Computed example of a mutant assay.
Amino acid sequence: MVLDFAALPLAFVFTSPGPEIGSTPLRWYGLLIAIAVLIGVSLSQYLAKRRQIDPDLLNDLSIWLVIAAIPAARIYYVLFKWSDYAKQPSKIIAIWEGGIAIHGAIIGGVLAALIFAKLKRVPFWQLADLVAPSLILGQAIGRWGNFFNSEAFGRPTNLPWKLYIPPERRPLSLANYEYFHPTFLYESVWNLMVFGLLLTLFFRSLSGKPRLRLGTLFMVYLVAYSMGRFWIEGLRTDSLMLGPLRIAQVVSLSGMTLGLVGLAWLYLLKRPLPDVVSPVKEQPRGQVTGD
Rank of each mutant, 00 (worst) to 15 (best):
243 G>A: 02
246 R>E: 01
200 T>P: 04
191 N>Y: 12
246 R>W: 01
233 E>H: 11
241 M>D: 02
192 L>W: 15
201 L>V: 07
201 L>H: 03
200 T>C: 11
202 F>I: 06
194 V>R: 06
203 F>Y: 12
233 E>I: 00
192 L>D: 09
226 S>Q: 05
243 G>K: 02
237 T>S: 01
200 T>S: 11
195 F>P: 02
242 L>H: 06
246 R>G: 01
210 P>D: 11
201 L>W: 12
230 F>D: 02
206 L>A: 05
209 K>C: 07
226 S>F: 09
235 L>K: 05
202 F>T: 05
236 R>H: 02
218 F>M: 14
221 Y>L: 15
219 M>A: 14
245 L>K: 00
200 T>W: 13
213 R>S: 15
233 E>C: 05
203 F>A: 07
211 R>K: 07
209 K>I: 10
231 W>F: 15
233 E>R: 03
207 S>C: 09
211 R>P: 04
198 L>K: 04
219 M>D: 07
231 W>E: 04
243 G>Y: 04
245 L>H: 01
241 M>P: 03
189 V>A: 15
196 G>E: 11
206 L>N: 08
213 R>E: 11
249 Q>D: 08
244 P>R: 04
210 P>A: 09
204 R>Q: 10
206 L>F: 08
231 W>V: 05
240 L>R: 00
241 M>H: 06
221 Y>P: 00
212 L>S: 08
212 L>E: 13
208 G>S: 12
236 R>E: 00
244 P>T: 02
231 W>A: 09
207 S>H: 13
200 T>Q: 11
199 L>W: 04
239 S>H: 04
194 V>Y: 11
191 N>L: 11
246 R>D: 00
191 N>W: 09
238 D>L: 05
234 G>S: 08
